[in-house]
Design a protein around this nucleic acid. Sequence first.
DNA 1: CATTTTTAGTGATTTAGATCATCGTTAAGT
DNA 2: ACTTAACGATGATCTAAATCACTAAAAATG
Lengths: 234, 234
Amino acid sequence: MVHFSLNSEYNNSQNLIPDDGIFNYLTGDEKIKLSLGVTLMTFERQDMIYKQNMPSDHVVYVISGLIKVYSGGRGDRVICIKLAGPGSFAALSSAYASNLYMNSAAAIEQTVALMIRKENLSDILKQNNMFSLSIINLMGKEILDISKKLVTFSMKQLPGRVADLLRYFSEEVFKSNEFTVSLTRQEMAELIGTTKESLIRTLNEFKNDRIIDLDGKNIKILSNDLIKVLSEIG
Amino acid sequence: MVHFSLNSEYNNSQNLIPDDGIFNYLTGDEKIKLSLGVTLMTFERQDMIYKQNMPSDHVVYVISGLIKVYSGGRGDRVICIKLAGPGSFAALSSAYASNLYMNSAAAIEQTVALMIRKENLSDILKQNNMFSLSIINLMGKEILDISKKLVTFSMKQLPGRVADLLRYFSEEVFKSNEFTVSLTRQEMAELIGTTKESLIRTLNEFKNDRIIDLDGKNIKILSNDLIKVLSEIG
DNA sequence: CATTTTTAGTGATTTAGATCATCGTTAAGT
DNA sequence: ACTTAACGATGATCTAAATCACTAAAAATG
């Protein structure tokens, strides 16, 4: 786990704060100020980023790679709440609604992320309205996403859920009809609230029905239409 | 459906904006400004407040009563995302992350609510940082609540879910160990993602096990400890 | 107040998918 | 390179809860 911390001799540098996305709303001054409470970290696969029930002192901003935000329940069962790729935040909700992390996060593949001290982010929120508004926007999107997932979990059965997973991968995570997942079957199952066995079976049914091509971690969607239909009929 | 609209002759009145909760952060001027985009409405049981896929022009602030926010899926199946009682908002997430309502809301009992035009709320958000921050806080709490529900839905079985429902009622909705639900068994089932039959059976098991007293819509929790255990073992 | 509709409650049956068991295969660690 | 562990894949079995099919009790409606 490589660890860079910005110390005083770099105070005049703003390199750590990206020049894109939501940070566009920050003034130069605000970027400098925020930099002081920021640590750039590199995580390897399976590295823990934060852990449920620990004090929530940081918010995570993913620069590259992919992380999973998940929650452990009874026994060894785990459910994955979301994946966060480049340009996404994790732990925003824990930061502003609790003083503990309400779930855990770990790297799925090698990931570079900004760890932002939440007080520093609060300072910005208190003075920059457009930044606040875009955080409100982000959180609104997150609520809608989780609500949609809740509906899926309580109404769709396996084929519909797996179809949703494939859409999620192709439309939001990998942004292509052909992709190589860095997740294990177990992790994929945790994303749609099922077991690895059931996920594997359904994925193979899709393969036999020529809806997808499947070769280990390489997945190619052959019929987006069928996937969409499956997702809709649940 | 009674309908009061604030027109010009009442411009100098701020009566419609409550003096409590989140609106404390507003200045007098802001309250006046917000009042212009606000309508006070009374809804009777089963009245629709807003509907999935309609343009999301208003945010709802519940003054008294109880409403349900729900989402319809395949067939006639419905899942209730949350209940909102006095002092709670509904449609905040739709307002700021979509131009359509992403779910529906209806009154469970007679409800008085402020319908706030979302542009007017945006105007306040753009100028009042503390107000924005408390909206961020509210949304964070909502994300955590839904995430918890997601975990429940994918991991707990019926006794655990029903225990969660009873805790939700006694701790958050009715704030007492003894309460009269204004919801039907069907609506209760929709809150925990099951069918009315399964809910009824589980509720009666709880009654037979002397965990609750049950007489129609009157429910009394006899053992909070057992409920808690059931909720935790799932 | 009679009638239609909605809600509550039970039993019998079915089923999707979890669980259990096992085995090659791939990847990781020594 | 060898050993151990993690992962992918399949088959057999089991079970929680959905579904179906009713009856009874309340509520709403005319």
